[in-house]
């Protein structure tokens, strides 16, 4: 009796594996690749004809030495260094002194980098790491505080940069879902395109 049950279990697992583990993902991959290849393959963004990243995955805008480049909008700090194969957060608890020191340090650096008066309130997204370490977006307030610095570095008018921020702001979906955010990579690519003309 037990042997019969074990045999049925094994055959059942194999049959359901074919159905759910092979047929199901392959059929869906087929549908996705035929119907929505751009999205199914990572929503890539291109510059000069080559892929420079994904609209959904954040990336660093730093010099080779790791310094933030003033001519680019800066994304949120990342616990994963924007390594898309090592997603994750810091996992520091809310009362962990390491977290509190890091936030204070990041806030000082943010104010200095953007020429803000000491004590200027900094939007929380600018000084905290995300859960994925790959957050592609920043808040509108964060973008607007960075805009004068970017404008100065690029010799553009502040109004022009602010208008661009507004253009690359994604509102809430259906007016309700999620938060209004600015996609950093899309915005920076648009800035680079401006520069060429």
């Amino acid at each position: 009796m037990m042997r019969r049950v074990l045999r049925a279990s094994l055959v059942m697992l194999l049959s359901l594996s074919v159905l759910t583990g092979i047929a199901y993902p392959l059929v869906l991959t087929g549908i996705a690749q035929v119907g929505m290849p751009g999205r199914a393959n990572g929503s890539l963004l291109y510059a000069h004809g080559r892929a420079v990243g994904s609209a959904l995955i954040g990336q660093a805008f730093t010099s080779a030495a790791g310094q933030p480049l003033p001519q680019y909008f800066q994304p949120r700090p990342s616990a994963a260094n924007y390594d898309a194969l090592a997603s994750g957060g810091t996992n520091l608890g809310p009362s962990n002194p390491v977290l509190l020191r890091s936030v204070a340090r990041l806030a000082r650096a943010y104010r200095a980098f953007n020429h803000l008066a000491p004590g200027t309130p900094v939007p929380v997204d600018a000084v905290t790491t995300s859960g994925s370490g790959l957050d592609p977006d920043i808040s509108i307030a964060n973008a607007l505080l960075q805009a004068p610095r970017v404008a100065a570095a690029r010799h553009l008018s502040r109004a022009r940069v602010r208008a661009l921020v507004q253009r690359y702001t994604q509102g809430r979906i259906l007016g309700i879902l999620g938060e209004p955010v600015v996609n950093v990579l899309e915005l920076n690519l648009a800035l680079d395109r401006l520069g060429r003309h």
Partner: peptide, 13 residues
């Protein structure tokens, strides 16, 4: 314009 709250470990979107 501000995505508020305890954002450590959270995504702004």
């Amino acid at each position: 314009t501000v995505v508020g709250g305890n954002l450590t470990g959270k995504e702004v979107r």
